[in-house]
């Protein structure tokens, strides 16, 4: 598989179809892999792919990083099935021109975040994965079969447990979790769909979201972040993985996915032609205010 990937990368770079291939490479810590930017066809040997490749590289296609246009104009990006869902989201929202990027899908049987741990536990997203073979990518490397898209919300064990709790218990749970927040915004940076070039949290005139690490500041930020992803979050889990203080952000995201699934019958990241329910309206909408 790696050989195929390297051959394709080489071909794309040599033909000029791509000016960079963003993929995974080695890290000095053998338990990890890290994003690499390959611009020289002679360097394609640095590309690797295995269950240590955690990052959602669709994040680099996000306009916020200004990599496209400024540093590169024709990127090719290696995407697992789940990551490709984020690219679908960016295309739906006209944040990404599919003509200008080459999406390289890689078949994936699941990732292992703590690679040296004896149990080799996979994250929740791998348990409910319906894209072992990526969809909507120009190329697919690997030979896993295509699966039917999962069109209903499926909660993780933790999310189901939390949902059973009373309002007061949930409030207490989130008070404790969000008290850890140091407001570094790594959750935003790692999110492929947090694509605002100017984030509301960065506005200081007026200061909509307090930058302080107190309860008001931390709640404002985390709720704003979650709300902005309603109907858009594809569940890659990058926010939670990036969080340096271990806040289980995916539980918030899951709750949003649940509501969007129940109210709109919509699951994000499946169809580049569809419109996410919260960024569009129809005349049949029940709410008066929208008409």
């Amino acid at each position: 598989m790696e050989t195929q990937l390297r051959e394709l990368a080489k071909k794309l770079l040599e033909s000029g179809e791509a000016d960079v291939v963003i993929g995974y490479g080695k890290h000095h810590d053998e338990r990890r892999r890290a994003p690499v930017f390959i611009t020289d066809p002679a360097d394609v040997e640095r590309l690797v792919f295995d269950e240590r490749c955690l990052n959602n590289l669709a994040g680099y296609l996000n306009k916020r990083y200004k990599l496209l246009g400024a540093e590169f104009s024709k990127p090719a990006v290696v995407l697992k099935g789940c990551d490709a869902k984020a690219a679908v989201g960016l295309i739906q929202e006209a944040q990404l021109d599919p003509e200008k990027v080459t999406l390289i899908g890689v078949c994936c049987s699941g990732v292992v975040p703590n690679f040296d741990a004896a149990d080799g536990e996979r994250p929740f997203k791998c348990e409910i994965c319906d894209v072992h073979r990526p969809r909507h990518t120009a190329h697919v490397i690997g030979d896993l079969p295509e699966e039917a898209p999962r069109t209903e919300y499926a909660p993780s064990e933790l999310a189901a447990e939390l949902a059973k709790k009373s309002r007061e218990e949930r409030y207490a749970f989130w008070r404790e979790e969000l008290a850890k927040c140091i407001r570094c915004h790594a959750c935003r940076a790692a999110c492929p769909l947090c694509s605002c070039e100017r984030c509301i949290a960065d506005s200081n005139q007026p200061q909509w979201v307090p930058t302080s690490g107190h309860e008001l500041g931390s709640w404002s930020w985390n709720i704003v972040r979650a709300f902005h992803l309603a109907g858009r979050c594809i569940g890659c889990g990058e926010c939670q993985r990036a969080c340096p203080v271990g806040i289980p952000l995916d539980l918030l995201n899951q709750h949003l996915r649940k509501i969007v699934s129940e109210r709109f019958g919509y699951v994000a990241g499946l169809d580049p032609e569809s419109r996410p329910p919260l960024t569009t309206y129809t005349e049949k909408d029940a709410e008066e205010f929208i008409r």
Binding site: Y65, L67, I182, C184, H185, A186, A189
Partner: peptide, 17 residues
């Protein structure tokens, strides 16, 4: 410099810890 830092996502986690 760019080659050494393309992958950085510009989050602040490193500075905060």
């Amino acid at each position: 410099w760019p080659k050494m830092a393309f992958r950085c996502l510009s989050c602040g986690a490193c500075t905060f810890v």
